[in-house]
Nucleic acid binder design. Structure first.
Lengths: 117, 117
DNA sequence: CTCATAAGCAACCTCCTGGTTGCATCATAG
DNA sequence: CTATGATGCAACCAGGAGGTTGCTTATGAG
């Protein structure tokens, strides 16, 4: 297998997409917004901005970043735009981590088998 | 509750730490290294560099980033330094995502209960 | 002992990111 | 119709992140 190719834990080339998701979750402000959306359900940008420490524009930017990662989806409702969580990608990322740690356990076991033989 | 406080899904102020972990996983090169360490077990920097497209120094930097996030641990063995995965933090991050998506399901259910009443 | 190999340190560069301000647009309440 | 509130768009800025090159140090092989 070519070492240049970036591969995911399941052998697919999904590391790129997952890295995108993790990068989106990697900013504290953004992660806070995700948690907020999770707790309080769909929210408008203005509502999301109130109770945050950054500008409305910053909030909007972050929402677009999250949307590009597939973590969030928004639609216009009247004069405000409402955003809500997209849990599928979240689930995908969760499974990614699951596979990695699982695989790691297997590796440990293999090593132990070799060493303690 | 103060909106300025950044809170995790379980109510603790662990969003900062988790954001650190996600940020560390958010870079494709780094995520690739994690997967590689997961697949092939403990590796030296030189071995990790071979089969990567970046410099040895870049690899070392990334390892330190991962270490600061608690995802990886390294020790000197002879003239080489060997690095291995630290699966506990990985597990923590996984659980974080799990809680968020779970909580989201609860939110959905609550909303549905209100709307369809 | 000598030499090649593995790693550490430091400076440097470029580009992206998080954040801001200012202004334009559009929908809704009266 | 008008004023106000909610967004969208664009320019701009500082700082950090990812990456490189060059040099030094230490350890293991012969």
């Amino acid at each position: 297998m070519s070492p240049a190719r970036l591969e995911g834990p399941s052998g697919h080339a999904d590391a790129g997409a997952s890295a995108h998701v993790f990068a989106a979750l990697g900013d504290p402000t953004r992660l806070g917004m995700v948690v907020r959306l999770c707790r309080d359900g769909p929210l408008s940008i203005a509502r999301l901005t109130a109770g945050s420490q950054v500008t409305r524009q910053a909030v909007a930017k972050h929402l677009h970043v999250l949307a590009r990662a597939g973590l969030v989806r928004g639609h216009r409702r009247g004069r405000e735009s409402v955003w809500e969580l997209e849990p599928r990608r979240l689930e995908t990322a969760r499974r990614y981590l699951e596979v990695v740690s699982k695989r790691w356990d297997d590796t440990l076991e293999r090593l132990r088998a070799v060493v303690e033989r």
